[in-house]
Amino acid sequence: MKSIGSYIGSFILSVLLIFALIASLAVTVANIFSKPDNIVSLTEQKNISSIVYSELEKYFTSRQNDTGIPADVYMTAIDDELIDYVMYMEINDGFSCLKNGTQSDNSFIIKNDSVDKALSDFYSNYAESIGYEKDAKYDEKLSEAQKNAEKVIADYCDVFKFDAMISHGIMKKLSPFYNKLPTVQLFVYGATVMLMLLMILANIKSTSATLYWIGICSLISGIICAVPCIYLKATDYFSSFTIKQPQIYTAYTSVMTSATDTLLKYSVILASISIIFIIGYVLTVKNQGRNKGE
């Protein structure tokens, strides 16, 4: 640090660079979790379809005395493949609404022949066993049961409750932020690179000083991001998530935990890179000292 002027200049640039690096980490993580494919992949990793299956089984079992339809009728027709498909469609529909800021266009219809057929067979056998004439009321009841089954399956597979968020207008409010994310990401990355270049320019006469300032900036921003993540993990903070419906709880806590893990991972990488800069700085200073001695 040759002069106080250069020191103060580098200090101010460092403060800005630290915030730019923190913002870069944040937008990188936000970008990862704003892609429907990553969310779908996370639900697959956490095997949420099996949780949904068991919750559907519980629901249909609890309703069988009310509806007279044994849970088996539904459950033999529902499999992980169907649940995965409906979950995939629900997530994509949710993100599509987030992107377009519109209401769900319900472009996908959960039409599953196996569930419809299972119900149709059951109704038919039951009607025959009690001698019930298959009249208009019969068709109405059957159609009602099929629609209800589709609605229940869709509702249980909507593990992020996108439908509720869409109907409450939350997606519309979030849409502008979501759509601005790529621009913000570009801006933040650009600002970070720009600040690094300015730092190099501010210390053009001393490579070691550049390494020093960039090194400590990376270290501090890495630590600032890592500390809250470590706190969240150490206190098992997300386990106190209020919604205790197993599939919703697992979906949300998985995303939150995964986002925390990703941020922590990048923070540690950034802090590790800073060590390289600092080692580089120490070596350069030593070299300079040796050269002066010679």
Binding site: D236, Y237, F238, S239, S240, F241, T242, K244, Q245, P246, Y249
Partner: peptide, 13 residues
């Protein structure tokens, strides 16, 4: 405070 309540610190399973 609404989303995370310490008194509910349990896994639904």
């Amino acid at each position: 405070n609404i989303a995370f309540m310490d008194s509910l610190k349990s896994n639904p399973t």
